[in-house]
Design a protein around this nucleic acid. Sequence first.
RNA 1: GCGCGUGUAGCUCAGUUGGUUAGAGCGUCUCGGUGACAUCGAGGAGGUCGCAGGUUCGAGUCCUGCCACGCGCACCA
Length: 760
Amino acid sequence: MKVPKVFLKPYNSKLVEERIYQLWEKSGYFSPDKIRSKKKFLIFLPPPNVTGSLHLGHALNACISDILIRFKRMKGFKTLWLPGTDHAGIATQNVVEKKLKKEGKTRFDLGKENFLKRVWEWKEKYGNVILEQLKKIGASCDWKRTRFTMDKNYSLAVKEVFRYLWNRGWVYRGKRIVNWCPRCQTSLSDLELEYQEEKSCLYYIRYPIKKKSDSKSQLLTDKDQTPKYLVVATTRPETMFGDLAVAVNQKDKRYRNLIGEKVILPIVKREIPIIADKRVEIEFGTGAVKITPAHDPLDYEIYLDLVSKKKSKEFQNLFLEIPRIIDDSARICEPAPKKYQGLKVKEVRERVVEDLKKQGLIEKIEPYLHKVPLCYRCHSKIEPLLKEQWFLKMEELKKVAVEAVKSGKIKFVPKRWERIYFNWLKNVKDWCLSRQIWWGHQLPIWECATNGSEKWEVGGEKGGKREMRVEKKYFFSLEKPKKCPICGKCQPKQVEDVFDTWFSSSLWIFGTLNWPKTKKEINFWLPSDVLCTAKDIINLWVARMIFMTIEICHKIPFRDVLIHPTILTKEGKRMSKSLGTGIDPMDLIKDYGADALRFGIIWQYQENQDLRWSNDAVIAGQKFINKIWNASRFVFFQFDKKISLNFKKKSLSKCDKKILKELKKTKERIEVLIESYKLGKALRVFYQFFWNKFCDVYIEEYKKLDLKQKEKSKIVLGYVLFESLKIAHPFLPFASEEIYQHFKKFLKKPKSKLLLIERW
RNA sequence: GCGCGUGUAGCUCAGUUGGUUAGAGCGUCUCGGUGACAUCGAGGAGGUCGCAGGUUCGAGUCCUGCCACGCGCACCA
C-alpha cells in the first residue's frame, strides 16, 4: 500500500493540530453525554479570570487535567471536564477602568449603569481568549457546558447560598478595621493582600505627661524642670490625631505607676489616658504604644476590650466616638488639624515629623524595615480603615472544612499542603464579603429607609471581637420587594456593595452543575475526582469551596486536591508579565507544536518541586514526536495489504516475545503512575520504552528477520505501535491521533473512528 | 520570629525501603547517511551528590549542626 502523501517527514504540527481538534469536537466525545458507562470521572477547571491569558502555569494545570481526562475516557469512564471563567470582580473592573483612563474618564464619569455596560462589552470581546488558548493546547473540555460566574443561573446560586447563610444567622453587618484599597475604593479580605518590604522609620515621639495633682492641664516642657514625657514609638506619626490613648504593658516596671494618668497629645493638645494592655510588647520600641482605633486593627481591639469591660469608666467619655482622620482616598481629613487636611498620608507624615521636631518632641528616628500590605490587583498601599462591612461568621464553616480533610475524605497531594490549609483555618477571621466596586454580584440585602437608629453590640470570641449591628434595618430579598417587611411603608433600597469575587468562586462546584435549578446533576456527579490547582489559592478558593459545597450539598466537592508546582524562570524567579519574565505558551506552540509543549511541561513536572522552566524539554518533545512519527512511517511501509492485529503465539520470534513482555510491563507501570498523578515519571517510562526498547532494539531486530518471519512479525510490529499510540495519546494527543487516522486505513476492522475513544 | 521546600554533570532534573561502576533530557566532542528517522545512529568526555560531623561492614539516601537560595505564616505600635 502507498503511504499517503500527507505522511511526510518530519512531523509538522501546523498541518495537524487544528484539523484534529475539529475532528474531536465534532465527534461530541468531549461531552459525557455520548459516553455510556456506569463509571464517571469529573474534573472542574479552575475558572480563569476573564482578564487572563494563558501562561505556563495554566498550561501545566490544563495538561495534567487533560491527561487524566483522556486517560479515563480511554478507560471507558463517562468523563466530564467542566470549563468556565470567573468574572474576577476587581481585576476586571480595573482593566476596564484603565481603558477608560486612556480616554480621560473615570468610572464615575460614566456612572454605574454605563460603566457596567462597558465591562460586559469588554467581557464579550476578550473574556474567552483564555478558553480558546486552552483549545490550542488540546484541552478536551466539554465546551458546551462552559460556565461563567455571572450567568443567570449562577447568579441565582449566589443569592440562594447567601439566603441560606443569612437564615443560619451567619451574616452580619460589622464594624471592623478592614483592608482598604484607596485606588480601587474597596475593602479587601486578608487573603487579597500582597506584602512588600519597605524601608521606613520608627519615630520616637514625646507625649507630655499631664501632672497628676494639677486640676488644669499643664505642659511640663520647661527646660528648668525635668521634662516628663512618655515616649511613644510609631511608624505612622500622621495617625496621631486619631489617638485615643497610649497603652503600656502592666508588667512594665518603667510605666506601671503611670497607668491611669494622662498625656497631652502633641499639636492638637488633646488629653488622652495611659492604659494597660498585655498585648503591648515591653521590648518593642519604648514599650509604649499610641492607640489609634480607627487605623490599626490591634488598637481597635484594645479599644473594644476597654469599652466592653467597662473597667475604665473614667475614660468612657473619651471613647464616645472614634476619630477617623484618614479618608477613603488615603488623605488626612477632619478631625485632624486643618493644615493637614486633604493631604496625602505620606506627606502629612513628613510634615508632622517636621512640626514635632520644631517643638522638640521627636526623641529620635530609627530606620525600620517592615512589610507593607498592597492590593493584590493594583498594588496600591493598603490603608487599614474602620468601616462597616458585611461579614460571614466562620466558626461553623471552618469546623466543616477542617473535618473534611482531617477525616481523610479529602486528600491533598502532596500531603504537606494540608498544613497550609489547617493553619489558615485555625486562625481564620470572619470573612468580609462586601466590596465597594460595581462589577460583581450585588448583595441581595435591602435597607429599610425609616428604621435608621444606630445600635451596636460588641460580640465575638477572644481575638475576634467585633461590633455588630443589632437593630432591624436590613433584610434579605431575592427580588426587589414590593413592601418593606420591617416598617411596611417605606421603599427599601438595595445595598450597593457587591460580593467578594471569591464568594461566587466558592460555589463553583455546584453553581456549574445547575444548582439551584436542579439537584439532579449534583447527585449524579459529586464528588468530583480531583481538583488540580496551584498552591496560592488553597485558602482563597479551595478551602472555601470545601466548606461551601459540604454546607449546601452535603457532599464533598472533590476527593483529591492536586497541588501542582509553580513554574519559575530559569533563575528561579516568579514568571511575570510586567517584569517581562513570562513565557507565552502560544509562542511555544507556534515554534514547536502543542504536543511538544505538552511533552516539555509534563517532562519537567515532578510532583514535589517548583520547576525552573527550560525550553530544552520542549525541544526533546519535538524530537520524540518526530521519532514516533518516523517509526510509524516505517511500520506502515511494512504493510502491503490490510491487516488485523491478532497474532498467534506460535508464530512469534524471540524478539517479538520480548517486546510484548516489555510493552505489557510498561503499560501497567504507566497506569499506576497516572493514577497516582506521577505524570512526569509516566511520560519518561513511555519515552524509554518507545525509543530505546521499541525503536532502537525491536525495529532493528525486526529488520534482520527473514522474509517469512517478517510476514508474521509485522503484526506484532503493528500491535506494539498501536498500543504505544494509545499510551501516548493522553500526553501527545494531536500527533498520536493523526498517526492513528493513517493507521486506521491499514486495519481490517478498526474499532474506533478516533484514538480519543479507543479502549486503553 | 515560626514553619515548609530546595541544593546531584555546563543547564533542567531523576535517584524507590541505605547495597556493586550515581542516571535522563538538552548541550558538548568523535565517528557514521547502513531498508522509518540527521528533529537520526554508534561512541566519548563531563559529578569530593551544598559544607562539617555522626550512625553503619557500607550513606546521594538516615541523624545532628551549619551555609545558600526560594516560599508561606505571624509580628509589622
